[in-house]
């Protein structure tokens, strides 16, 4: 299932991190363990999530054990969004 959060994150990673806007990322494609999202870019990803969704990801969570795919990252974000009134 691809929703708004997943596609926003996918677009950001393809454009800003991979420098290849045409690159489609599968929801379950490994991001960190594959090296696609490198260590220099992890903080960027956390900053982007914070400014776009208002959700904080702690630096200790920037690892493949916490999320390693668009799906995993989107779940993390969704779980921290305030409930819709």
């Amino acid at each position: 299932m691809t929703d708004e959060i997943t596609s926003t994150l996918g677009r950001y990673i393809a454009t800003e991190i991979l420098k290849d806007p045409g690159r489609q990322l599968a929801d379950d494609e490994p991001l960190i363990s594959s090296g696609l999202v490198d260590s220099f870019s992890l903080v960027d990803l956390a900053l982007f999530v914070e400014s776009t969704f208002g959700v904080h990801i702690d630096d200790t969570e920037l690892s493949a054990q916490v999320f390693d795919s668009l799906r995993g990252l989107a779940q993390l974000v969704r779980g921290r969004l305030p409930p819709v009134a």
Binding site: K19, G22, R23, S34, G35, L36, D38, F40
Partner: peptide, 22 residues
């Protein structure tokens, strides 16, 4: 071409200390 590019990216990312940018 995209498949080959992805394959190269994967091999360098996982086989070296750097990440392939382009």
């Amino acid at each position: 071409r995209r498949r080959i590019a992805d394959d190269i990216r994967g091999r360098i990312n996982r086989g070296s200390d750097v990440v392939l940018r382009y």
